[in-house]
């Protein structure tokens, strides 16, 4: 059961910030447009549009000072697949399926330079630029078909779809099986995926399922379920990476909150396309430059958010750290499912 509609349009201020960071608007590309303690952000002033909008970062205080990420290190790197692949920041670029191949090539190359994942999901033909960049690409075609990518996507909508033989085939071909699943509260699906050998689970809110829940709820449920199977570093949670994506994600605030709920990577869909203004700009050189700026700007925002919470490492301190958050105006059931405390509790 959802509290909010799936479709949220990215417009107004959120859109303008993305465009400024990308350099499609304004004069300082690659920079967060504002840094401020106060804001008119939801849920306090503007209307919340999602469960994420009810979650606020608790922030640092006297005994736990904030960190100035412009002068001191806040580590945004994420290590995936047992430490085999290092991302410079916990993000990836998705929604490439309707782009001309020339632009797909550009995006794959740019993602590699920036140390983020390119998600080719839904793409029929595979760009040649995957060669040499295999670790930083999730394959487009579903299943083991022909792909150069090291990370092979398998779309799974229910527990019946989990096919251990397929997983074994992918592994024996020297590649990593990645399950792409809808946002569901069917936690048995998540544990079944992890125990059958998938190396990553992509929770994609835009896939349909019978028991759909909000992406943030699904991420939190998945994180908790995997933590409670197995002990310590042998828990399933430490054998599989959790990736989240949805069309409605608006920027680094949403990314930061999804990390705190347990995701390690967030794949950007509409927001990057709107930010670099793909509708009007198709020159690969400009697209590449804007995408770099957008990612660098969002990386700085993530550092500012982590720094404000006194956290200097996204991977070890922020991922799965619900204690950094408090929730405003959420019902008890949702609070307990998310594992986030109500504002004011210690």
């Amino acid at each position: 059961m959802r509290l909010y509609s799936k479709s949220v349009s990215i417009e107004g201020r959120a859109l303008s910030y993305l465009r400024q960071m990308a350099g499609a608007e304004g004069r300082v590309p690659g920079e967060p447009p504002i840094v401020s303690m106060g804001s008119t952000a939801p849920p306090f002033v503007e209307d919340p549009q999602s469960v994420l909008d009810h979650i606020v970062s608790d922030g640092a205080q006297v005994t736990r000072p904030s960190i100035d990420p412009y002068r001191e290190p806040v580590e945004t790197s994420i290590y995936l697949f047992d430490g085999d692949v290092r991302l410079s920041m916990p993000m990836g670029i998705s929604s490439l399926n309707d782009l001309p191949m020339e632009l797909v090539e550009t995006v794959v190359r740019t993602c590699y330079r920036m140390g983020v994942i390119a998600d080719l999901s839904g793409l029929g033909a595979e760009p040649s630029s995957v060669a040499g960049r295999e670790d930083y690409v999730i394959s487009g075609a579903d299943g083991v078909g022909s792909t150069a990518a090291r990370n092979v996507q398998v779309i799974i909508t229910g527990r019946d779809d989990v096919d251990p033989a397929l997983v074994r085939r992918v592994v024996s071909s020297g590649r990593r099986p990645v399950a792409r699943v809808p946002a569901t509260d069917e936690v048995e699906l998540y544990t079944a995926l992890a125990s059958s050998g998938f190396k990553a689970i992509v929770i994609d809110e835009d896939l349909e399922a019978d028991r759909e829940v909000e992406l943030e709820v699904a991420v939190s449920l998945c994180d908790k379920a995997l933590r409670s199977s197995g002990t310590g570093t042998k828990a399933l949670r430490y054998t599989v990476n959790l990736i989240a994506t949805s069309l409605r994600l608006r920027g680094s605030g949403d990314v930061f909150k999804l990390l705190g709920l347990g995701a390690e990577v967030v794949l950007l869909k509409d927001c990057w396309r709107l930010g670099i203004d793909l509708q009007r700009e198709s020159n690969p050189r400009v697209v590449a430059e804007r995408l770099e700026h957008l990612l660098l700007g969002m990386q700085k925002e993530l550092k500012l958010l982590a720094g404000a919470a006194g956290a200097s490492s996204l991977h070890s301190t922020v991922c799965g750290n619900r204690e950094l958050f408090r929730a405003v105006e959420l019902d008890d059931r949702t609070l307990s499912v998310l594992g986030v405390k109500a504002a004011g509790s210690w």
Binding site: T63, R64, G230, A235, G310, S312, S316, G320, E323, L324
Partner: peptide
């Protein structure tokens, strides 16, 4: 002496450790 910001992440780890 201090105030650990990784507290919640550490708790989650310990919870999965029993």
């Amino acid at each position: 002496n201090g105030d650990v910001s990784s507290f919640g992440a550490n708790m989650s780890f310990l919870e999965s450790a029993g």
